[in-house]
Design a protein around this nucleic acid. Structure first.
Lengths: 204, 204
DNA sequence: TTCATTTATTGACTAAAGTCAATTCTTTTG
DNA sequence: CAAAAGAATTGACTTTAGTCAATAAATGAA
C-alpha cells in the first residue's frame, strides 16, 4: 500500500518534531541530527492492529508519538491487560542486544497510532556514534525502572477500588480512550466487578 | 566501631570476588581494576538495620553480596512489603544523577547482610573512565526493566493463591528466610489469609 | 436508519479475602 | 529455664470479588 501525499506530509512533520528534540539537546551538528534521524522510522497503525504477538522476536524499541497501545497476555484463553502506552511513553524491546527471546505478550493498538521506531541494530550504531545518547538512555531506563517499581508497589498496596481511583487521578484520559472491560482486566478484576466498583464510588 | 581483623579479612575476600568479576570481563588492565575497586565500598548490616527510610535522599546503588533486604512502604500506619532483594540482586537508587527525590519507601535487612555500594558520584566517574561499563549498565537496566514489567504482569494476572505458588516455584528459599506475615503483605493479602491459602493448598 | 455485534450493567448465588478476637506455637532474652 | 514477646493459626462473621445468565446500552457496518 503506497503512502498518500497526506501521509508523507504527516510523517515529515513528525520527523521534524523529533529533529527539534535533537537540536534542543544542543550537542549535535546539523548533519549529525540528520544522520540520527535516518536511523529512526515513523510508522502508523490502525486501531486493532498488532505491533507484536506472543512468540514474536522483536528487535526494536518504539516511542508513542500519538495514539494508544495495549499490552496484554493470554492466560487460559483470556486476555489479561497489563499496560496502556500513550503519547510520550516508550516501549522497550524485551530483547537487549544479542538475545533472541520470544515475546510472552501482545501489543495491539487501541486507537490509530503513530510510532517512532528504532531497530536494536540502529540503536547500537546511534549509541556508538553518540555516547551521550547511550548515557541519556541509561538514565531514562533508570527512571522507567523506578516507575515500574512504584507501579508494582502501588499494585501490591492497593485494592481494586483504590486502583480505579488511582487511575482516575493519574491517567483520567484512559477512562475515555479504552473500553471498560480492558480497564477491568488492567485493574485485576472482572468487567462485572469494575462496573460495581464504579457504582459503589458513584453512590458515595 | 572499629572493624575487627575478621571483618577486614571478610571485606577483602568480598573485594577479591569483585576483582575477579572485573578481570573476567577481559577488557581492563590490573591498575584499572584496582582503580574501579577503589570506587566501591563493602558494608555489612545487622538483621533489622535500615539502609533507607522514607524521606531519605539516597545517592547510591547497591548490590546484595549476601543476605536479604526488604523494601516496604508504610500506608495508613501499616507496613506493606513490595520486594525482597537477595544475593546477586541490585538495588538501584531512586535518584538518577542530579535529581534529589526523597524515598517513599524503607529498605531494611531481613538478615545479616553484606552490600557492595557505589555512590552516584563514583558511578559517574566509573562510567566516564570505562564507557563499556555504562553500556553494560544500560543493558542490565533494560533487563531489570523487563523483569519488573513481567512481575507487574504476573501480579495483575494472578490471584493470591497463584502468587503464593509462583513464589514457591521461583524463590522457594524466601519462604524460609522471611517471616510469613511479611510474605503475606508481599503477596497482597493479610497474614490470616495467607495462613488459610497454605492450608487450602496443603489439603489439595 | 436499522440490524447485528460488542460492551456494560444488573441480579442471584458462590467463593474468597478482610476483620477482629482468641488461642496456640515459636522465639527471644533476662 | 521461665516469662514475655512475637508469629501463626483458627473461628465467626462481614465485605468484596467471581461466576453465570439475562438484559440493556452503545457502537458499527450494511
Amino acid at each position: 500500500m503506497a503512502n498518500t501525499p497526506d501521509k508523507i506530509a504527516y510523517i515529515n512533520s513528525v520527523k521534524n518534531d523529533i529533529r527539534k528534540c535533537f537540536i534542543a539537546l544542543g550537542s549535535f551538528k546539523a548533519e549529525e541530527v540528520e544522520a540520527a534521524l535516518e536511523l529512526i522510522a515513523i510508522k502508523t497503525y490502525k486501531k486493532g492492529e498488532h505491533l507484536l504477538r506472543e512468540g514474536d522476536i522483536s528487535a526494536k524499541s518504539c516511542a508513542i508519538v500519538s495514539g494508544c497501545v495495549r499490552q496484554y497476555y493470554i492466560v487460559d484463553g483470556e486476555e489479561k491487560t497489563t499496560f496502556f502506552y500513550t503519547e510520550g511513553q516508550s516501549i522497550f524491546s524485551p530483547n537487549s542486544s544479542s538475545e533472541r527471546i520470544p515475546a510472552k505478550y501482545y501489543l495491539s493498538c487501541v486507537e490509530h497510532t503513530t510510532l517512532s521506531i528504532i531497530t536494536l541494530q540502529n540503536q547500537k550504531e546511534l549509541y556508538q556514534r553518540f555516547p551521550m545518547l547511550e548515557s541519556m538512555s541509561r538514565m531514562s531506563l533508570q527512571e522507567e525502572l523506578n516507575n515500574y517499581q512504584e507501579m508494582l508497589a502501588t499494585y501490591i498496596t492497593t485494592n481494586p477500588e483504590e486502583r480505579y481511583l488511582n487511575l482516575l487521578k493519574h491517567r483520567p484520559e484512559l477512562l475515555h480512550r479504552v473500553p471498560q472491560y480492558q480497564l477491568a482486566s488492567y485493574l485485576g478484576v472482572t468487567p462485572e466487578s469494575l462496573s460495581r466498583i464504579r457504582k459503589r464510588i458513584f453512590l458515595k
